[in-house]
């Protein structure tokens, strides 16, 4: 049976590459909406969008070679960590229906818009040289009224998007890291990078956004995946 996963963050990948190249060293830096936070229901229904997790092997040639088995493990671990975290906050996790949604045009467009907004935030809020004066000390991006395309079918108050990339040094690259250290060239060992966003589906606003960049951690290990997930979502306003 072919498993179909809907991806939430296609466009964000290119933006993430830029952030990694040029970005600041801050490990996590989150944003909360400048607007008023609408009242949170006692048991908020949170729609978990398919976690866009990919684990790769960083080869000697500097390539990220995706590894399906690791990715499956990483996804399971992150999903489990999410469930636990939300339960702790008395929130109800609702899972997005991944069966072939290319047919649902409005949803597909909304998810694409979210990707573009996420990429925009990564570039203009995390790269000082590209900061927008119109967003100075302001964080107010929205998906607009179209968010009802997710609110209604799922009865959800919020949607949570997670995007995580993890790469590991293959054996040949580990050899290089040693070599590189000797020559004084920084050869990275593999890194973890991601972002998460929380959308209030009642208004369409992105009320919370966080970027994660760290050089340690392994999503293949449940405990470390839990740590990475908690790190990413630690000041989630739920």
């Amino acid at each position: 049976m072919r498993e179909r996963r809907r991806r939430a963050g296609g466009h964000g990948l290119a933006a993430l590459a830029i952030v990694l190249l040029l970005g600041a060293c801050a490990q996590t830096q989150s944003f909360l909406t400048s607007g008023d936070l609408a009242e949170k229901p006692a048991n908020p229904h949170v729609l978990i969008m398919p976690t866009d997790v990919e684990l790769s092997e960083l080869t000697a040639a500097g390539l990220l070679e995706p590894n399906a088995a690791w990715t499956a493990a990483g996804r399971r671990n992150v999903d489990a960590a999410l469930d636990a975290l939300l339960a702790q906050r008395s929130a109800i996790a609702v899972r997005y229906d991944e069966t072939d949604s290319a047919a649902k045009e409005a949803e597909a467009q909304l998810l694409k818009l979210h990707s573009v907004v996420g990429g925009t935030i990564l570039v203009h809020k995390y790269l000082p040289a590209l900061a927008l004066p119109t967003k100075k000390d302001i964080f107010d991006w929205s998906l607009g009224d179209g968010a009802t395309a997710l609110r209604e079918p799922y009865g959800a108050d919020y949607a949570l998007f997670i995007y995580l990339r993890d790469s590991f040094a293959s054996d040949s690259r580990k050899a290089l890291i040693v070599v590189g250290a000797v020559l004084g060239i920084g050869v990275s060992g593999g890194h973890q990078a991601g972002f998460a966003s929380l959308v209030d589906l009642r208004s369409g606003e992105i009320i919370w956004f966080n970027r994660l960049v760290s050089a340690a951690g392994d999503l293949r290990e449940p405990e470390l995946a839990r740590e990475a997930t908690h790190n990413l979502l630690k000041d989630l306003p739920l």
């Binding site: 933006a15 040029l22 790269l127 040289a129 590209l130 119109t134």
Partner: peptide
């Protein structure tokens, strides 16, 4: 568009100035 931003990013970071003005 991302390519445009990437190029702009590299140029402005190299030039040491901000890409956007008010």
């Amino acid at each position: 568009m991302i390519r445009f931003i990437a190029v702009l990013a590299v140029l402005t970071v190299l030039a040491g100035c901000a890409a956007y003005s008010l």
